[in-house]
């Protein structure tokens, strides 16, 4: 068994959280509340030392008074707690939305629409390797049929009905893959904890 007290604390807290699998209890609640408290403390300290202090406090102390503008914008967020001046909160929100939309829309359009549409186009070059050509065709059919499934302006009958049903099959395969990956992810986390308990704590495995 490990002589390191931190390993023991980690192991005991892990077991406290796992105890929820049996039923809700005081040990689980203690572990949960401790986690929330520690996480909050960590984030406050990190943001103060790595963000607020160097980017605002130190700048103001050094006489860079232009930083009063972001300070005021930040303070305006708290205006919502005072009903008389709560409208002030719209200014920083408007600033953030304007900046965010400006920076995100072109990048999103380029990276996730134009390039993705380009990726579905089947060209003669796609068939240089016949197997790649087949995959390119499947992707093309999958994208078209899935889009047709979400086309609601016309009743899904006839050719539209057949293609939208094929679209559902593609969507279901996507859901299946996502579910499989989710199971793998959750099991991985459990394996990680068991490895910690059996290895560093109990010393039963390397």
């Amino acid at each position: 068994m490990s002589p390191d007290p931190w390993i023991w604390i980690g192991a005991i807290l892990t077991l406290m959280i796992f105890s929820f699998l049996f039923k809700d209890n005081a040990f689980y609640k203690f572990g949960e509340h401790l986690f929330v408290g520690v996480a909050n403390g960590y984030f406050i300290a990190l943001y103060w030392h790595n963000s607020l202090k160097p980017n605002l406090y130190d700048q103001l102390v050094a006489g860079n008074f232009i930083y009063i503008i972001p300070l005021l914008l930040g303070l305006m967020y708290f205006a919502r707690f005072i009903p008389k001046i709560s409208w002030l909160v719209r200014i920083p929100i408007g600033f953030i939305i304007g900046w965010g939309a400006g920076i995100s829309i072109p990048a999103y359009f380029q990276a996730e629409i134009l390039r993705q549409v380009g990726g579905t186009i089947v060209t003669p070059e796609s068939f240089i390797n016949p197997l790649n050509g087949i995959w390119a065709l499947i992707i093309f059919i999958g994208v078209v049929c899935t889009l047709i499934y979400f086309f609601f302006s016309k009743e899904h009958k006839g050719i539209l009905g057949h293609t939208s049903r094929l679209g559902i099959i593609f969507i279901m395969i996507g859901f299946g893959a996502s579910f499989g990956y989710t199971v793998m992810a959750r099991v991985s986390l459990l394996i990680g904890r068991i490895q910690f308990l059996l290895g560093p704590w109990l010393g039963l495995i390397k």
Binding site: A111, R115, Q116, G118, G119, I139, G174, A177, S178, Y181, T182, M184, A185, S188
Partner: peptide, 16 residues
């Protein structure tokens, strides 16, 4: 993480 992987296959296919 495995949960995220399916979302990134399209980017792999386009070479991004």
């Amino acid at each position: 993480t495995a949960v995220m992987a399916p979302k990134y296959y399209p980017f792999l296919q386009t070479g991004q």
